[in-house]
């Protein structure tokens, strides 16, 4: 990727939200000179003020929220993505200007409409400000997304013949089996803690209000699904690639004759896939449970599979050897 599109990503993803932040703060300072005391800090559903206090909170909330969010685009930009940003990365970058606009208009506008009032309770409705904030935020966000450079429409699929392959005898058969799991115990601890809290909550609720236990059915399914998508067994053999989730489900199978090549890549879960677990990115399905090394299995005309695990090279080399041998046998 060239430096101009890189520069454009920096301007839209970081400089623009910061500029909106600064302008909003300036408007808030300007409004500060002529505000009632206390000011309205909360409005009811009808748009009329229903809570009053110091304007200080707005001055803290605005920069803290925007700057905390900008840590994400900063991380995306710190990573070299030579082929241009993926759709996920463009969304992460465009959310900055959106968030900054919504917050800026609501907070600065909320103060500005109170200028010159003697009593904040008599202030005008906040609803036009909220409408302007979300309308403006969506426009700014969409335009930002569209202005960001797009990654290539179709990425060239490397040929197995150009990648490292394991030497394999004519009659030799081989299998590579690995566990796909998060680094260390961090995620296991989170999942276990989640399960314990969940069971405790459900138990308490069951005593107090038995019917409310139904509320826990969906979170329970999500927890089980999350667990099943976090621990996998990966098998590479003469049939191709087989992935089996922790509860022997889900099962993902890629027949050898669909596979074009395999290689080792480097994955950052948040910026490449927008998170962890079973993920869908453009043209790619990801089993993303950790940061770092990953096995990438490319298929012609179909979705690429990415599985995060360390020491993936022997698997990629075996897969390339199997692909080449099958090709040789077919032709």
């Amino acid at each position: 990727m060239n430096t101009t599109s890189r520069r454009r990503e920096q301007v839209i993803g970081l400089a623009l939200p910061v500029a909106i932040l600064v302008i909003s703060l300036a408007v808030m300072f300007w409004a500060l000179s002529d505000l009632p005391d206390p000011v309205a800090v909360h409005w009811g559903p009808a748009g009329t003020p229903d809570a009053f206090g110091s304007p200080l909170l707005a001055f803290i909330l605005m920069p803290v929220t925007v700057l905390a969010y900008l840590a994400l685009p900063a991380r995306v930009l710190a990573r070299a993505h030579d082929r241009g940003p993926t759709a996920n990365q463009r969304i992460l970058l465009a959310v900055g200007p959106f968030l900054s606009t919504v917050l800026g208009v609501v907070l600065a506008g909320g103060l500005a409409i109170q200028r010159g009032l003697d009593d904040a309770a008599a202030g005008p409705s906040i609803l036009p400000v909220v409408a302007l904030a979300f309308g403006g935020g969506i426009v700014v966000g969409v335009v930002s997304y569209l202005l960001l450079p797009a990654g290539p429409a179709v990425e060239a699929i490397p040929d197995a013949a150009d990648l490292p392959a394991r030497p394999l005898g004519v009659d030799e058969t081989a299998v590579w089996i690995r566990q796909v799991r998060p680094v260390g115990a961090a995620l296991a601890i989170i999942l276990t803690a989640g399960a314990i809290l969940f069971i405790a909550g459900a138990t308490i609720v069951a005593f107090v209000q038995p019917i409310a236990v139904l509320l826990f059915v969906l979170p329970a399914l999500l927890l089980v699904f999350g667990y099943a998508c976090t621990y996998w067994t990966l098998t590479v053999d003469r049939h191709g690639v087989l992935l089996r989730g922790a509860l022997t489900w889900p099962v993902i199978r890629i027949p050898l004759d669909q596979i074009e090549s395999a290689r080792v890549i480097d994955v950052d879960p948040l910026s490449d896939f927008g998170g962890w677990g079973l993920r869908w990115a453009p043209r790619t399905t990801g089993i993303i449970v950790r940061r770092g090394e990953a096995l990438e299995v490319a298929r012609r005309g179909r979705r690429t599979l990415v599985v995060t695990l360390d020491r993936a090279a022997p698997g990629a080399e075996l897969l390339n050897a199997l692909v080449l041998r099958q090709r040789g046998g077919v032709r």
């Binding site: 009659d171 058969t173 022997p314």
Partner: peptide, 8 residues
């Protein structure tokens, strides 16, 4: 784990 067997 990687395992290979060669009947040859």
């Amino acid at each position: 784990m990687i395992l290979t067997v060669d009947p040859a």
